[in-house]
Amino acid sequence: MKTAIVYASVHHGNTKKIIDEIAKTKDVELIDATQTVEKDLSEYDLIGFASGVYGGKFHQSVLKFASVNLTDNKNVFLICTYGGRPVFKSIEQVIAYKHDNIVGRFSCKGFDTFGPFKLIGGVSKGHPDEKDLAAAVEFYNGLTEQPVFLK
């Protein structure tokens, strides 16, 4: 199974820690959406979109990358790191428009100093931690060890 994870990890590297841990154990191509604007995704069997939550949405570079490059009828999984709460709606709208199948969602806390969190020294310090990283790998393994069928 050929897998790519398209990601943006901008402030504290929370999302990058998660996807790097997944990539250590499996053959996964990591695509930084802040650096890569276009990429043919048709050759991948499974595509992940990973981002921190910025203003209640996935990072704009991931949303734009998905809207430009995602092809119809792909199996897609989502990963987000957050200080406040997990939010998937922005990327789910793009995926629905492209007629793709969401096969799983993973989220965990990540150190966050954005906006009002900066005033209190940040939230979710120490995350993602070892437990979060192990849970992310377990989530991904669950996707790849089971056959995935389109709706």
Rank of each mutant, 00 (worst) to 15 (best):
F77Q: 04
K125A: 13
D132K: 06
H99E: 04
E92R: 05
V103G: 06
F65Q: 12
C108G: 08
S124A: 15
T81E: 07
I102Y: 06
A134L: 12
V103F: 02
H99F: 02
K98T: 13
I120P: 14
F88T: 02
G122P: 07
Y97Q: 02
K64F: 06
K109C: 09
K125I: 15
K118L: 13
D100Y: 07
D112A: 12
K131F: 06
K74H: 15
S90Q: 05
F77S: 03
A134E: 15
S90P: 04
D100V: 07
I91A: 02
T71F: 09
T71E: 04
N73Q: 11
K118Q: 09
G110T: 06
L119C: 00
P86R: 07
R85W: 14
Q93D: 13
A66K: 00
D112I: 10
C108P: 01
G110I: 03
Y82I: 05
K98G: 13
G110R: 01
G122Y: 07
E92C: 03
V94Y: 06
D72F: 13
K131G: 11
E92K: 02
K125G: 15
S107D: 08
L78N: 11
H99N: 08
V123T: 11
I91K: 02
N73K: 09
F117H: 07
P116N: 15
A66N: 01
F65G: 14
L70E: 00
G121A: 04
V76G: 05
N101F: 13
D132H: 08
K89Y: 04
P86T: 12
K118F: 13
F111N: 14
F117Y: 10
F106K: 02
V94H: 03
G110N: 05
K98L: 09
V87W: 03
N101K: 04
R105A: 01
D132L: 08
N101Y: 09
E92W: 11
N75K: 15
L119F: 14
N69C: 00
K109E: 12
H127F: 13
S107E: 00
A135W: 01
